[in-house]
Computed example of a mutant assay.
Amino acid sequence: MDDAVYRAPPTDGLLIAPLDEFTAVYHRASGITHLLTEPAPQILAVLCEGGLSLDALLDRLGQDYDLSDGTREALAARLDELVEAGLVEAA
């Protein structure tokens, strides 16, 4: 899905609470609470602002974080996990 656009629900569809090294995310639509670790909460926060392709998301995250080689594949894997959890959709 190289040309997919990834979207997260608007922040009013989520309740987010930091818990030490975890972030609890309650997804109102499903009624499920997820425990996330970095970088998933940061990815989710960016995607709550609007839909982005994998490359656009990588560029956006690169503005705030020092990203190294191999990051595109790792980001794709994290996105797949968020899609499987139902927190992000790919269109």
Rank of each mutant, 00 (worst) to 15 (best):
D2Y: 14
D2K: 13
D2Q: 13
D3V: 09
V5D: 13
V5G: 13
Y6L: 04
Y6T: 02
R7P: 14
P9F: 14
P10V: 02
T11C: 11
T11A: 13
G13E: 15
G13R: 15
L14N: 00
L15W: 09
I16K: 07
A17I: 04
P18N: 07
L19F: 04
L19P: 00
L19R: 06
L19Y: 03
D20T: 06
D20C: 01
E21G: 10
E21R: 06
F22K: 05
T23M: 12
A24V: 10
H27R: 01
A29Q: 09
A29M: 10
G31N: 11
G31I: 08
I32K: 04
T33Q: 08
H34T: 03
L35I: 14
L36F: 05
L36N: 02
T37V: 11
T37Y: 01
T37M: 04
T37C: 08
E38A: 11
P39C: 10
P41N: 02
P41H: 00
P41M: 02
P41Y: 08
P41K: 04
Q42E: 15
I43L: 00
I43P: 01
I43T: 05
L44I: 00
A45K: 12
A45N: 10
V46C: 07
L47F: 05
C48E: 03
C48F: 09
G50C: 14
S53Q: 03
L54D: 13
L54Y: 11
L54F: 11
D55R: 01
A56V: 01
L58I: 08
L58H: 09
D59T: 06
D59Y: 04
R60N: 14
R60F: 12
R60M: 14
Q63M: 13
Q63P: 11
Q63C: 11
D64N: 04
D64W: 02
D66S: 02
L67V: 03
L67F: 00
S68H: 14
S68D: 15
D69P: 14
D69N: 13
G70Q: 00
T71L: 00
T71Y: 06
R72V: 03
E73M: 00
A74W: 10
A76V: 13
A77C: 04
A77T: 02
A77S: 06
A77L: 02
D80P: 00
E81F: 15
L82P: 02
V83K: 04
E84K: 05
G86D: 05
L87W: 10
V88S: 07
V88F: 03
V88Y: 08
V88R: 07
E89N: 06
